[in-house]
Amino acid sequence: MSIPSLDLTADPIELTAALVDLPSVSRDEGLIADVVEQALRAQTDGFEIVRHGNCVLARTNRGRPTRVILAGHLDTVPIVDNVPSRRTMTDEEGDVLHGCGTVDMKSGDAVFLHLAATLADPAHDLTLIFYDCEEIAAEFNGLGTIERDLPGWLEGDVAILGEPTAGQIEAGCQGTLRVRFTATGTRAHSARAWMGDNAIHKLGRLLTTLSEYQPRRVDIDGCEYREGLSAVGIHGGVAGNVIPDEVYVDVNFRFAPDRSEAQAFAHVEEVFAAELAGGQVTAQVTDSAAGALPGLANPAAAKLVDAAGGRFRAKYGWTDVSRFAALGIPAVNLGPGDPSLAHRVDERVPVEQITEVTEILRDYLAGA
């Protein structure tokens, strides 16, 4: 089967549309990886290019004093009648490109690919990483595969993830922790409730503590991170006439990146110390991921902030910047598109944001 061609020198808006028109749902990125690899090999100069599974990596080795990593995932969530792409012009939204991945994050990929082909003499050495399986469980994430198998490719002075940020820098990211609180009791017929021990009732005080919790706000490098502690799931009960003998509630803690995962769990245990003290309620971590400090004081990152007109804010969600931060590399999110539109059936990006991010990065990478 012939591989479709991709013109990396085309306007990044057109390049975005071409990438969207290549379906690449997670675990099915083979075709788009083939197309990206072929285009990079044919249309860029001075890049070492490596294919690893469905990850495509390219880097220069020009002896520049700094190295910038540009990383973007190739996969999307499942398509819902939103491929191929289409472009509309309305009074409400202006010139907009629609389609699965326009926001998350084929527009960011298009910007990176275009710059790799058109930047004649960048001030930094560049590493481009296009990876698979970001939208599914972390165990399949292509960046994790690269970190394990090709760790040298993740060395750099600053990393830029093309995640959607509406064209302004979102620095670092928050950590996330999920804790399951479980209470047990004794099952009995509800007509003889005194013979049982109702597990659900034991979580009443925990839910009250949760509803009264006052989350912290913390400023790091001029970025305000807002923490949150929320119940996200609850399960209990056997039947309408049975006293339940077990119940659990899942609590998600989104914590600022000045806390480690261990410190985040210690804080959760402190908040619910009274509920846990009697031993009738237990706590178990079911999922955890570290946050990432913004690192904007790093000279390479500071220059990027300048190129973006000084516009930056904290990243509230979790992204793969955390992987780079764990390696000691300052990392930011910067890409076209409103993140609140990611994964939606009506996913769409204003085309002016694609142009804007391209110019911001062109100036930064050129050392302007």
Rank of each mutant, 00 (worst) to 15 (best):
H267N: 07
H235R: 09
V238Y: 02
V268K: 08
A231F: 07
A266T: 15
V249A: 14
G295D: 02
V218I: 07
A262Y: 09
S260I: 13
L293I: 10
N241S: 14
G237P: 01
E261Y: 03
A290Q: 10
V251C: 07
A290T: 08
A273W: 05
Q280R: 15
P257S: 13
R226L: 00
C223K: 08
R254E: 03
D221A: 06
G278K: 15
G233E: 11
D219F: 03
G279N: 14
A264S: 14
Q284W: 00
E261R: 10
E261H: 04
N241T: 11
D250L: 10
S260F: 09
E224R: 06
I234C: 01
A266Y: 11
R254T: 04
A289Y: 00
P244D: 07
A231H: 08
H267I: 07
F272M: 07
A277D: 09
N252C: 02
A283K: 04
E270P: 10
P294L: 03
E246Q: 15
I243G: 04
T282Q: 06
E224Q: 06
D245G: 15
L276F: 05
R216G: 03
I234G: 02
D221S: 05
C223M: 12
G237F: 01
P257C: 13
A256C: 14
C223W: 10
F253Y: 15
G228S: 08
L276T: 05
P257E: 13
I243N: 04
G278Y: 14
P215M: 00
E246F: 11
D221L: 03
R216S: 05
P257W: 11
G240W: 00
P294H: 02
A283F: 03
S288P: 02
G291M: 05
G222V: 05
Q284E: 10
T286F: 00
T282G: 03
Q263P: 15
S288D: 01
D221Y: 04
F255Q: 08
R226N: 00
Q263G: 15
R226T: 00
H235I: 07
V285H: 00
V281E: 13
V242M: 04
S260M: 14
D287M: 08
D287I: 01
D245L: 09
Q280F: 08
I243Y: 03
Y248N: 11
A231Y: 09
D221Q: 05
V251R: 07
G295N: 01
A277L: 06
A283Q: 04
V218N: 02
Q284I: 01
E246S: 15
V251I: 13
E269R: 10
G222C: 06
P215I: 00
A266L: 11
D219A: 12
T282F: 03
V218T: 08
I243H: 04
V285P: 01
A231N: 11
T286R: 00
G291T: 05
P257N: 14
G240N: 02
E261P: 09
P257D: 13
A239F: 02
R226A: 00
V285M: 01
S288W: 00
F255L: 08
